[in-house]
Amino acid sequence: MPVSDADRRIARLAALAIGLTLAEAALPSPVPGVKPGLANIVILLVLLQHGWRTAAWVSGLRVLAGGLLLGSLFAPGFWLSCAGALVSLTVLALARHLPSRHFGPVSLSVLAAFGHIGGQLALVGVWLLPGAALIKLLPIFAAAALVFGTVNGVIVTRMLAAPAPAGRQSAPCTLP
């Protein structure tokens, strides 16, 4: 099967997302599971520029390769990542139909962040920690989703507004 331009684009964007995932894994976090979700910046840009299918590919590859590189493939953390990405992509699939006149990247980012943490917590609640222990942590995770979702959304807005760099080799992409 020949490799198309679209495949190369997906690979390049996925590499970016994986890079951000790895960089983020090195950041210390006060609460396990609270992360900025920098890779979601890439997913969101891909969604807005190349559509949902490409975003889903990039997201899936990121989760898989991130699991491979961090050594958590098929471990609980990997499945949490899967659940988060899945719900987040589902939310984005619906949210991208919101009128873009009123709803910008910040909306998409915040909704996706809530979807991400919602999917993860749902899996944790059903599979890893059934019971009430999780409830006390909900506000922390929700607040983190709100804050990081907003920050990521603002970053995406600014990146989209920035002029595209000259001398591009392949498909349009405002990523650095």
């Binding site: 915040v110 909704l111 506000p139 929700a142 600014r158």
Partner: peptide, 26 residues
Amino acid sequence: MLLRAGDAAVLLAGTGLVVALTLYAW
């Protein structure tokens, strides 16, 4: 423009959700 009307609404709803969860859980 950084924030559109809907964005503000989403942020507001998100804040409401966080506050409600905080009250509910804590």
